[in-house]
Design a protein around this nucleic acid. Structure first.
Lengths: 348, 348
DNA sequence: TTGTAAGCGTTATCAA
DNA sequence: TTGATAACGCTTACAA
């Protein structure tokens, strides 16, 4: 009875033997190609490589070179559609550049951030793409990085010198809030997950408040508040929405939800209250998802260029891995308003 | 001006020097712990390790041992919520067992399957979790596997001997179709992405047809057909749905959609037609998503135990990596019906 | 232009 | 019980 009798991978030594040359020659053929190689020797090596269908072991190369062609991706929460979308863009760009992705999902447990980085670091990843809370002890993280290039996506880390790729949060919030105001909504509520220490949430909330205070000169009866929603207490939303309409009185009440997760919570609350988007409460939500068009009268959203974000993040990293060393950049991409029924009053 | 002056990782040699012992001793301390070690030497090593905060290089270990504590995950499409959910379960289980995940996304391009496997294989991954089309040339894939353990999720590969973890498709289809019948729906349509060569789709469609022929003895006016929907021609759905209601006549028309992607397409078509789920067309869709409750009157779904699927898949693999070698298993998990408004006639 | 040999950080074999 | 030493598969001085 034969078990799976798979020939082990051919090594550089095998190729050398097959071609009747030294390992060094094979290595040179692989790495320096045209330089320093006689035509016929090169040919013999090439043939041998093909014959054995040899390809070098990245592990061994990594050990020797100290570079692995691996990129570590740490994600706060693979469940978040935004993270997945970024992941997708990044993965694509990495593959195209011949890098592979090592994935570490924090499952929203920010304490595991340095654990993640150490684990990936141990595997000699050449660089990191971090889409994490950034709450972890900076020192620990920094240490584990060992001076490897990092690009931060969506969330800054205080005091970490690194490329940063993100949505233009301030612009996007203005887009959203302004759209509601133009639709006639006057009593606004910004709903976010817990804001403290998460840069993107802080930026969005701050932008919302500035928008309100900046606009109040033109739109006298405009008001705005913020509410932090948690997964543990979704019901609290019901009360908050009721209060919102109460405050609104005869004016129209509108909500800006700060990501898709929150949007879904709002949708749940609306369902519990028996209210309709648009007529009872206006809504513009961050993150345009595949399902946005089909909830209620269609959800108006701020579409993030997620694919671009992931791609650019990977691009920044790969550029540095190729040796470039520009000063840390901030790359802010604009969001796009996708208006649908949820921000229109008087449509059922 | 000091550049990032990070001390390089400590090596086993550093530890040996620090402790005044040989590398072999340190290695033994790490791998064989209690056996063959004098108390005080063990202590010295332990102290040295702590002092240098040393941890062994998995790369070097992989090179030496031929095992990497890496698991390769190949996903047909990270965009598919089902894949992400499985990914999440698998990633968790792997992390708990001390494995890291290397991710390769096919982006629905099945031709890259063997490319993916070779790439991961080159990095000495210890095993594979495959959630792929399984359409690729079997030989190429098989070769690249090099006899490493594999577990297939959701999709079988013809002639590949491997553990297989999946939803009990037949049972789930019966659950869905039967629910529609009990709700009074009589003219049924099973809508799937292109079926050929994708085992889960084939199984679901076959189960649907058997359900119809099995039930027709009890429910005389029951009819059922199948439609294959493509991303390229979503509009075709409109016609199909119109025909469906036409065929139904006075009977109620119901749809079973075979995954979340298809469900969304149906929702789009319904919106274009101005029809309501439940009253105009009944629906039960595979995959219970976060947004299912909020579309129309709520979408009735078949919930897959995705987390379990991922976790079990990883579990099977890890078991084999620990040396167990049971014959290939098939693990089928049951789906759960989540009834909502879309399968109830007469509710708006 | 090619080959020899050392070394990347481990583990495993053999002596001591 | 511990320590040299030789691999693992590769790259790179240095020699030839």
């Amino acid at each position: 009875m034969t078990l799976q009798q798979t020939a082990p991978r051919a090594t550089i030594a095998d190729v050398a033997r097959e071609a009747g040359v030294s390992k060094a020659t094979v290595s040179r053929f692989l790495n320096h190609r045209e330089k320093l190689l006689t035509k016929d020797i090169a040919l013999r090596v090439e043939v041998a490589i093909a014959a054995l269908s040899y390809s070098p072991s990245p592990m061994a190369q990594a050990l020797k070179r100290g570079r692995s062609r691996l990129i570590g991706l740490v994600v706060a929460d693979v469940t978040n559609p935004f993270s997945v979308a970024v992941l997708r863009g990044a993965e694509k760009a990495c593959q195209e550049a011949g890098y592979l992705l090592m994935l570490f999902n924090l499952g929203n447990d920010s304490r595991r951030e340095s654990e993640a980085i150490s684990a990936l670091s141990a595997y000699q990843v050449d660089g990191f793409i971090l889409n994490t809370l950034g709450r972890d002890a900076k020192a620990a993280v920094q240490a584990a990085l060992h001076g490897k290039p990092v690009v931060l996506v969506d969330r800054r880390h205080r005091g970490m010198q690194a490329d940063f790729v993100s949505l233009d949060n301030a612009g996007a919030v203005r887009l959203a809030a302004n759209h509601l105001v133009e639709g006639g909504y006057r009593e606004l509520l910004f709903i976010s997950e817990p804001i403290k220490n998460v840069s993107s949430r802080e930026e969005r909330e701050a932008a919302f408040r500035s928008f309100i205070s900046d606009s109040v000169s033109n739109v006298a009866d405009l008001q705005g508040r913020t509410f932090e929603s948690t997964a543990e207490d979704p019901q609290a939303l019901d009360d908050v929405l009721r209060e919102l309409r109460q405050r609104a009185g005869k004016r129209l009440a509108g909500v800006v939800s700060s990501n898709a997760v929150v949007t879904l919570r709002v949708a749940a609350a609306m369902a519990r209250l028996g209210w309709q988007f648009g007529s009872d409460v206006g809504l513009v939500g961050f993150d345009d998802t595949e399902w946005s068009p089909y909830i209620g009268p269609g959800l108006s959203t701020i579409e993030q260029p997620t694919d671009e974000l992931g791609r650019i993040a990977a691009g920044c990293l790969i550029e540095r891995l190729k040796g470039a060393a520009p000063p840390p950049r901030q790359i802010l991409l604009s969001g796009r308003l996708v208006p649908r029924g949820s921000s229109v009053h008087g449509v059922t």
